[in-house]
Nucleic acid binder design. Structure first.
Length: 585
DNA sequence: GCCGTTTTCGGCCCGACTGTTTTCAGTCG
């Protein structure tokens, strides 16, 4: 059992305890333990013989260590089993619907015996929820909409989840001798926000036709396979326990490029590419680009060879959507897309003053290690009480600490890194901010964010944001739209108003790097560029580790055809950055 | 259930917002 599974089981147990109205502190212990387990770099299953090492992990005590030992050896644990006698596992899925919490799930179960989404939908449509306390027509309508949204999105997996699975599977495949390279293809390689299934392409001496069967057997016997769907000459398909379908193809080196091109897609890109090949008397398939007349192979080994043979510049996977990239590649006008190393600073992160885990200095040193030239410390303000948000007094004191660290590092590292004082203020219902202007005036970076967006009508949310960015101290609009409640389509309609006004005011809009925190999809990013918005790409890091988790965010930027010139924090120095932000009053 | 003790119990991030109330429970972050 791997750490991720252990973490998931502990987290699910916490949810079941919540439904069971258990001790909130006990519940939190399970959640904290789950989080701690997930962050471990060593597999706990290898430590169960040495429970003392488990106790060394913060958040894991005697009881939790026993739980983990039990989980690893039996696959479950007594408390979990006991709760599953009382409740159904499908109830955990109900918790994922917007507006559904443990109390409501418990009530639905006791009053209506509703334990899954289908039954809930039926009950809602029949008006049965109206008979329950605190549930009216509005709640019912919102719930039905939520169910609809949930169903539409749940068949796809988020890119970071998919990437994690891809990495784990790759590591297991890699153990077979004679495997050189494993590349995820499909929408994962193109950087889509979600992927339907996982395509893994594998090559190396072990994948040559005469010997490939042994490697195929190795893949088909991977321990994490839930259901084996198919096993062919060079392809294995299976699903994982979470229902993610994985297709692994083992291909000879000589045709790896053609396969990579073919399986990366998109479908529309490939169709257009094949049309172009035919015009040149060539044919393109998953094995090679070849002449139509005598099947002579023109290119197959690498993608670069194939594009070159079609008189095209190499097209990065993120652009392969048949939305103008072929024309640009033919005319040598493809953009020089932004890369990770172009990002010179990070302007949104938290420390242990609020809900982060590391100190100002630790964050700064991590940024230095990543090669950044400047960062802003933007802890939460008081409205986010659960994060121990800063009130005006504490915020001002925090600035002093940030400046002190900045001064220390300046002398220690000869100005290699600057640490700017900042704050992430919350936008209240009336669009005002929750700290005084006099406090904000002391900050270099003020990020304004809406945090309470439960069941908030989009129009009101939009008005709230529009009002907030009128505050002259706001220099960055943080995660510009709500995450859970607002559907993507709705965002596309309403975000344009926000982007327009932000652009007029010179307020930069933030693109958060981690998908879990990201709100601007590639379409919205393109929209932002169109309206001349300043864009900053941040991590919203709460730990030093998160400070490095920026690659998905970059992929998103690349999908939007953005170049270093489009992104504000590609400025080489803090000074240059600050002059490019909205001027302070 | 964890942790740190003024070491073996008592504390453990809590305010905003919504829908349904008519004083508040539940959800969210």
């Amino acid at each position: 059992m791997d750490n991720i599974t252990i973490a998931r089981l502990l987290d699910e147990t916490a949810s079941l305890l919540e439904i069971d109205a258990g001790d909130p502190f006990r519940i939190r212990s399970y959640r904290r333990a789950a989080e701690a387990v997930e962050q471990q770099t060593t597999q706990l299953s290898t430590l169960v013989a040495e429970p003392k090492q488990l106790l060394a992990i913060a958040g894991i005590g005697k009881g939790m260590a026993a739980n983990i030992v039990e989980l690893v050896s039996t696959g479950t644990m007594p408390l979990r089993e006991e709760l599953l006698q009382k409740y159904k596992p499908t109830m955990l899925e109900l918790l994922r619907l917007p507006g559904m919490g443990p109390k409501t799930v418990a009530l639905l179960w006791s009053a209506l015996s509703v334990s899954d989404i289908d039954a809930l939908e039926t009950a809602a449509k029949e008006g049965k929820l109206l008979e329950l306390p605190r549930m009216g027509q509005k709640f019912t309508d919102k719930l039905l909409k939520g169910i609809e949204d949930y169903r539409r999105n749940s068949s796809r997996f988020r890119i970071d989840d998919a990437r994690e699975h891809a990495d784990r599977i790759s590591a297991l495949i890699q153990t077979f001798p004679g495997i050189d390279e494993i590349t995820p293809a499909g929408s994962l390689r193109r950087g889509r926000e979600t992927v339907g299934d996982l395509d893994l392409l594998v090559t190396g001496p072990a994948c040559e036709p005469n010997v490939v069967s042994a490697a195929v057997e190795h893949v088909a016997a991977l321990p994490l396979i839930d259901k084996l769907l198919a096993k062919g000459q060079n392809k294995v398909s299976f699903t994982l326990r979470n229902n993610l379908q994985v297709d692994v193809r083992l291909l000879p080196r000589a045709s790896y490029g053609a396969a990579l091109q073919y399986f990366t897609g998109s479908k529309m890109h490939n169709v257009a590419l094949r049309q172009r090949a035919i015009k040149r008397g060539l044919t393109l398939n998953e094995y090679a680009l070849a002449r139509l007349d005598d099947n002579t192979i023109v290119a197959a080994r690498t993608e670069e060879d194939i594009y070159r043979a079609l008189d095209l510049d190499y097209i990065p996977p993120e652009l392969r959507e048949n939305s103008g990239e072929l024309e640009a590649a033919a005319n040598h006008t493809l953009p020089q897309l932004i890369t990770l190393t172009d990002i010179r600073g990070d302007l949104h992160m938290h420390t242990d003053a609020t809900d982060g885990r590391n100190t100002i200095r630790e964050m700064a040193e991590a940024a230095l290690a990543r090669g950044l030239s400047y960062i802003a410390i933007t802890d939460h303000s008081k409205n986010l009480a659960m994060t121990n948000g800063l009130d005006d007094t504490r915020a001002l004191a925090h600035i002093q600490r940030i400046r002190a660290v900045d001064a220390e590092l300046q002398s220690e590292h000869k100005g290699k890194i600057r640490v700017l004082p900042g704050i992430e203020v919350d936008i209240l219902a009336d669009g005002s901010l929750d700290l005084a202007d006099e406090t904000l005036a002391q900050m270099d970076i003020v990020v304004a964010s809406v945090h309470s967006h439960f069941a908030q009508p989009i129009e009101e949310m939009t008005q709230r944001v529009l009002r907030a960015i009128e505050n002259p101290y706001v220099r960055i609009l943080g995660h510009p739209t709500g995450r859970k409640v607002l559907g993507r389509e709705a965002i596309a309609v309403h975000i344009e108003q926000i982007l327009k006004r932000a652009s007029e005011l010179g307020v930069a809009v933030e693109h958060n790097a981690a998908p879990a925190r990201s709100d601007l999809n590639d379409l919205n990013l393109r929209l932002a560029k169109q309206h001349g918005c300043k864009i900053v790409v941040n991590t919203d890091a709460h730990t030093t580790a998160e400070l490095a988790q920026i690659s998905y965010g970059i992929t998103q930027l690349r999908r939007a055809w953005l170049t270093p010139a489009d992104i504000l924090n590609t400025c080489p120095t803090a000074k240059a950055l600050l002059t490019n932000l909205r001027p302070r009053p």
